[in-house]
Design a protein around this nucleic acid. Structure first.
Ligand SMILES: [Mn+2]
Ligand SMILES: [Mn+2]
Ligand SMILES: [Zn+2]
Ligand SMILES: [Zn+2]
Lengths: 144, 144
DNA sequence: TATCTAGTTATAATCATTACAAATTTGGAA
DNA sequence: TTCCAAATTTGTAATGATTATAACTAGATA
């Protein structure tokens, strides 16, 4: 799990400024475990920075992803990209009904990593390990 | 790996017709190993069915995905959804430069599945296991 | 044949994301 | 401190994949 220092250091080391907007976005990313989208981040921070623009959120997320300190998850059935400050490969569980994404621990991820690294010939930059289905509460709701 | 019969049977069992368009899309899906997008499928089949519409491709893919006989992969950095007729959970390697997606065999996927199934409490419907990075030829190209 | 319906098609609408240019802020030079 | 160039942010417009809509077609049924 990246810390706030990880993110801010990597910005500085890349010669980029730590603006209030970037800092707020970084803070939110490391403090949440909800795998937010750009729009969610924008809505959360708008209260503190009323002048914040959605473009800045997208730009900052792209910058952090390019630096390799956050992970870009794909869609969870909702046509929006989710982000994760936890860049150690780990498994996600996405509900196709309510679109929540949670982490699932599994020891086998580490073995999987070793396999892929050894076999692929690719220069690996990250992973998106996503199982999807219906979360317990959405299962109930569907049967009512 | 789903066969053509798997796809056509599941369409019939759901009371849906096996139209020429649907058949052509199913054939392409089971014959390719390239994880095509809706647009790629449309372009491939247009020669045989000049009247084919992109909407039909999208509709058919959604139908097959809802039936659970094809898998919806996320983006590979190209902002387009990729599809896979191989619904047994397996690992993908996506190149962020040329956007090709290949399969990678690993025994640990089976163990991972067992873990997730046992622990989650979710009703699991599928998985997207994607590592991304630079493929060997794009690595060369970047260093020239 | 006449009718009904699932499916297809063409077209338009949606909306997340990206591109662009003007305005603002910043850190450093003078 | 004051000024300046560069970096960054912002508001707005453009893009493009996907989805919605409604007219049309084909194929089954009676
Ligand atoms: Mn996570
Ligand atoms: Mn595959
Ligand atoms: Zn749910
Ligand atoms: Zn490549």
């Amino acid at each position: 799990m990246s810390t706030l220092e990880d993110l801010t250091k990597s910005l500085k080391q890349a010669g980029l400024r730590l603006t209030p907007q970037r800092l707020a976005i970084c803070k939110l990313l490391v403090e949440t475990d909800s795998h937010p989208t750009a729009a969610m981040i924008y809505e959360s921070i708008r209260a503190q920075y009323p002048s914040l623009s959605l473009t800045t959120v997208y730009n900052t997320l792209e910058t952090l992803a390019d630096l390799g300190v956050i992970n870009v998850l794909g869609h969870s059935g909702d046509n929006t990209v989710h982000y994760d400050a936890n860049i150690t490969p780990h498994v996600h569980l996405a509900c196709i009904a309510c679109h929540k994404i949670i982490d699932v621990p599994s020891l086998h991820v580490a073995f999987l990593n070793d396999d892929i690294s050894a076999v692929s010939g690719y220069k690996l930059l990250g992973a998106r390990l996503i199982y999807y289905g219906l979360c317990p509460s959405c299962q109930k709701r569907n049967y009512q």
